[in-house]
Amino acid sequence: MAKLANKVSLVTGGNSGIGLATAKLFHQEGAKVIITARSKETFEKAEKEYGTQFDVIQTDVSKLEDLDRLYSHIKNKYGKLDLLFANAGIAQFQATSDATPEFFDSHYNTNVRGLYFTISKALPLLAKGSSVILNASVLSQKGFAGSSVYSSTKAAVRSFARSWTAEIPVDAVRFNVLSPGPIETPIYDKLGLSGEQVQGMAAGIPIKRFGTSEEMAKIALFLASDDSSYIVGAEIFADGGMGQV
């Protein structure tokens, strides 16, 4: 039997990478899947390629009016949410001496503020027994040159999961965190790292390779399904051992 039969799920940033792989797997497991894409260009591309599989909504999570429009659509069309994968985020590396206020704000507006209100505005729609998965990163606890801004945003995400688990009844919503290590996704083209830095990162992973979006999707499915019913407020590292040894 499908693990997510008839569940209504939302995957933010579901138009590429980990989000897209997760949306596809959720769909295969019987869920009705809504995905968001940030820009007009990415929305139109996702709508053309995946519009028959998913309900695609253009949403910039850093804009509260976009979130209001997204949740109004979900309420009117589906009436509830059973699963939410808060995956949308940005990642760029800059040395602290080079980082501008604009660079700092862009990360915090999306990765922290955007995620926070993605969850808070979803609460009235989340059905009893729903599962929320927050996408963080192994870099929330492992230092890496140039990652100070990005890493701190992901540490905030981990903190949110703890606080929400303490605040919101667990029988209503389960909050857990998926923290990937380096994953082969389009986001690595935007990090500002040199080829040597990327190769060096891979060499420093005990498993000696980057992970795949499909591997992350399987963990998201586990956290979304009843298979993880006794896992609450936890952080699962899927990092090839990068942050563990």
Rank of each mutant, 00 (worst) to 15 (best):
W164R: 06
V33H: 07
E235F: 11
K80M: 12
K63L: 10
L20I: 07
V138K: 03
G146C: 12
E184V: 02
S72M: 15
A122H: 07
I18F: 04
L25V: 12
R162E: 10
D105S: 11
S72Q: 15
K190H: 11
E215C: 14
A21L: 01
K75G: 09
S229K: 14
G19S: 09
E65T: 15
L25G: 05
R174E: 02
F54N: 03
D98F: 12
G114L: 04
G79L: 12
L67F: 06
K75M: 07
N76W: 13
E41M: 13
A2I: 03
N135G: 00
Y50C: 06
D239C: 14
L139H: 01
Q28D: 10
L123R: 01
S120P: 00
A5F: 12
M201I: 13
I168H: 01
Y71V: 08
A31Q: 01
K218T: 02
L4P: 04
F144P: 00
A234L: 04
L25K: 05
S106M: 08
R209Y: 14
A202Q: 13
R174S: 02
A91L: 02
I187Q: 04
T153I: 09
G129Q: 10
T52M: 04
L115S: 02
L70P: 05
K7E: 13
E47D: 14
S159Y: 07
L139P: 05
E102G: 01
T12A: 04
E167P: 07
N6L: 11
Q28H: 14
R69H: 15
V112S: 06
S62V: 01
S179K: 04
A202K: 13
R38N: 12
I74P: 02
T96N: 08
E44Q: 14
G192I: 04
S9I: 03
N109W: 06
V173Q: 05
I187K: 02
R69Q: 10
A122N: 02
L125E: 07
F117S: 02
I183E: 02
S179I: 10
